[in-house]
Amino acid sequence: MNEVALLRSLLAIGAILFATGVIGLLTRRNLIVMFLSAELSLQGIAVSLVAWSRYHNNFGGQMLVIFIIAVAACEAAIALALFVKLFHDRGTLDVVAWQTLREENLPPHIDIEVPEPEAREEKWPELTPAGREPAPNLQQQRHRARV
């Protein structure tokens, strides 16, 4: 196998993954999606490190990826605890809810047009009625309601 071509292909894949993660972190407004994008950038770096490890025939790159995984696990634990706390505070995962944290004297961000919820096409299958309709079991309904 051509090692230089393999290195270059993997570095290209890693670069595209990293850029994708950066775009996601910059554009998305949901806290959790932003965090997922940051993790995507980390994956791009990991692919590059493993490619270099292969080219240099050396375990150093793979060791770094092991530590990246360990740090990502710590990061995920802390971030999720923070998200739960923040969600309890404001009741939303939108980053705009914490816009008071930025510099002073900036005009507040207000959504000019809120997009309409997308109409979902829920088509449930319809069965042809067959047999007689069973009498309602009042006792069972009351029991269910209490549970």
């Binding site: 910059l26 554009t27 998305r28 407004r29 949901n30 999606v33 939303t92 995962l93 939108d94 705009v96 959504d111 809120v114 997009p115 919820p117 997308e118």
Partner: peptide
């Protein structure tokens, strides 16, 4: 999804 999932900053 919520409404802020259908918006982005400067896409």
């Amino acid at each position: 999804q919520d409404f802020y999932d259908r918006l982005s900053w400067e896409p």
